[in-house]
Simulated scan of single mutants.
Amino acid sequence: MPDVYTPRRLHRDEFVTLRGLRHHLLRWGQPLPGQPPLVMLHGWMDVGASFQFVVDALATEREVIAMDWRGFGLSEASGADCYWFPDYLGDLDALLDLVSPGAPVDLLGHSMGGNVVMTYAGVRPDRIRRLVNLEGFGMPDVAPAAAPERLAKWLDELKEPPSLRPYATQADVAERLRKTNPRLPADKAAWLAGHWARETPEGYRLNADPAHKLPNPVLYRKAEALACWQRISAPTLWVEGSDDQLTRFWGTRFPREEFEARLAVVPKLERSVLQDAGHMLHHDQPEALAERLHVFLA
């Protein structure tokens, strides 16, 4: 078993009820006069603890809050057989009402979380002081004609609910993390595995509701997303890794040129590329990301 990463800044676990579901928060630091909290939101099949390495690398002490989305980490699952983006917006709205009811926050999201915060920042522009999107590209636009096939696929898969396979040991979970992202150091993978999965009689199971794997019956509409993006009033930082995951994952279905056109509608946009980093750039280059955040959020 490799050495396990030792965090520099320990978090406090907190459980709160948001919209009827028990949510898990990780909190670092204490509120400081005149400084908003930095709220961090993870991506699909990830957990709030994923941001530990960036928090450790931040140049100055500040209050940081990360939440496990519903059905991920230690947050309660919805009990439904599908997860909808409007629910993530509702949970985020309730979270900010709880942690910073009278003042805007600095808001950061990775991947799926990046997509959520971009939409939220356009819907509630007065709630955000600074906005950071880490590789939250969105998805290819889907034409209305695809609706019957998508709905039929969803109905078919409802008949056989998905499952997540168990792992024999926590070390196997860490190995799976490193297989997905070879840049992840062994000690950090070993630490993350303890937050990514839990021990059960059948083995170690991921802290995620298998319903997340079901296809979403609601089509992704680029026009709706951009209607929100263009209403963002906060200065916005877009950060991506030098290893182009957009082209690798979507290919010609979502060409780089289309994404560049989407970013063009964001009013106050800064961009940054982290070298030797892929989609999990907060794992690959936490120090470089923390330095970029320090400058942007100052």
Rank of each mutant, 00 (worst) to 15 (best):
L41I: 15
L293R: 01
A168N: 05
P210T: 01
S78P: 01
W84M: 04
D68T: 04
H110P: 04
V39L: 12
D93P: 08
P255K: 11
T60K: 09
P2S: 12
E291L: 08
D81Y: 08
L131R: 09
F51T: 07
E257M: 07
G29K: 00
A121C: 09
V142W: 03
R19K: 13
P210D: 07
Q245A: 14
Q170M: 13
T17H: 06
W229R: 14
W69Q: 01
F53A: 15
M67C: 09
R27F: 00
D3W: 02
P104E: 04
V64P: 06
F254I: 13
R150T: 15
G136V: 08
R8F: 11
A145M: 09
H212A: 03
G34M: 05
G122A: 00
F137G: 07
S78V: 03
I65V: 15
R9V: 14
V239R: 11
G114P: 13
S242M: 04
A147C: 00
Y5S: 08
F53E: 13
G114E: 04
A223P: 08
D13P: 07
S50G: 14
Y167H: 14
F72I: 00
E202C: 05
Q230A: 12
E157Q: 14
L246D: 02
G122S: 07
F85D: 09
Q52I: 08
D141M: 04
L95N: 01
P182M: 06
G20Q: 12
A227L: 06
L246C: 13
Q35S: 05
N115C: 15
T247W: 00
V54Q: 00
E257Q: 15
L41P: 10
R205E: 11
P140F: 07
G194D: 04
G73T: 07
V105P: 07
R176W: 05
Y88N: 04
A57Q: 13
G136D: 01
L134K: 03
T6H: 12
T200N: 10
A234E: 09
M1E: 10
R231P: 09
P7Y: 02
E270P: 00
N181W: 02
L151S: 02
